[in-house]
Nucleic acid binder design. Structure first.
Lengths: 125, 125, 125, 125
DNA sequence: GTGGTCTAGACCACT
DNA sequence: GTGGTCTAGACCACG
């Protein structure tokens, strides 16, 4: 369910957050679904429980899930909408990188092609 | 000549690396040019000499400059070509993020607009 | 585990690099093994942590180890093979010096004896 | 006459020393020959006169040349013999590297082959 | 003046 | 506990 890279620069807890958000955004995790418990997930990924706790706490802070003590942790009702709003940050990232490419003199077309390629669009050159 | 953000999460030395590469890519720093000395730049940016040393060492490792001890540090002959090759990685980054946006259901146009905005193009909405 | 010469001209961090490579090459450090932490090694050798950090970073750059922040630093899977390839460079060094000796008119036997001596072979003169 | 590398790690003055010694060892510079003047050599190699001065001083210290003020600088009578003795250091270098190769488990033959190759000997494998 | 190395000690984030 | 980054200030060799 989760794929983590122990040696990359992005912290594990952040990877958990990102991937959970992506699961919600893509509809795999629906509102009301139960998230895997810290305990179970911890040994499944052989990751320190504290790390998962940190990730889940952050997700709660963002309003994407709530913990029902004794019952588990669930995706909130407004979660899908919330992650949608989070996309703006990613757009900012793209804009930022594109600015560098612009400064380096790369033609716009190539940058646009990269985006189109991601969307599976055929590039007619 | 350089612009440092002391509060972001990206380390200072990496900012130096990035910006130097951009200066080379955009032709402001030409091949054979001398880079500002560690000491001078250090007090100009009020950054520790060691931090700059680290940045410059990395640039050297990437083959973008060479140091002539006692004489200074110079942009190598092949530097321009090398940073050009580095642009492909940035395109990959864009493609990668765009894929996430695609998976999240964001319409292509918004992603393309982000790129166009970076290139200073007027967006007609 | 490590032997430092503080008065030679070769920098400490380079000694660490060399010796670590040798430990890997000779099988004392196996793939997956954890390297001594910067802090521990620092006081064990009474060397500044930064110096060790520099050495380890270089080893990482060469693909001989990876760091898992918060967990430690480990010898990579391909490390043994990598240091093996590095031996070719050393052979080149020997060839290079031997060429000088040849040009200076030194008989081959003496050069060969130097190698044999290193391998602990008895020299019958 | 001299070939210098401005960006290598070995200082220029040392390159001058080494190459002069090699010229003497190989008989190109004979005892009694005049060395190029600091002034001339300086602009020929576009190297700082101080650097050359330093090299020549060291050569004098080693007894390989003497300066006759107003007349120039000459290779001493015993120079050829002296550089011959200097070869021992190079043998030590070879022994040192060979020790590392030994520790890394490289078979003796390959190390010996490297030496033989330098002496232009055919390797029969 | 230049680059290169090192020390001492601090702070932060992650596990 | 781990690694990563940074500062302050020192020393050396080279040109």
């Amino acid at each position: 369910m989760f794929q983590i890279d122990r040696f990359g620069r992005t912290p594990i807890y952040e990877q958990i957050i990102d991937q959970t958000q992506r699961l919600i955004a893509s509809g795999i995790l629906k509102e009301g679904d139960q998230l895997p418990s810290v305990r179970v997930l911890s040994q499944e990924l052989s990751v320190n429980p504290n790390t998962l706790q940190k990730a889940y706490s952050e997700l709660e802070r963002r309003g994407l899930c709530v913990s029902a003590p004794g019952n588990g942790r669930f995706v909130t009702a407004g979660a899908f909408k919330l992650v949608g709003e989070g996309l703006k940050e990613k757009l900012e990232e793209i804009r930022h990188i594109a600015e560098e490419l612009c400064a380096a003199g790369l033609p716009v077309e190539q940058a646009l092609d990269a985006v189109n390629a991601a969307y599976g669009k055929e590039i007619v050159s």
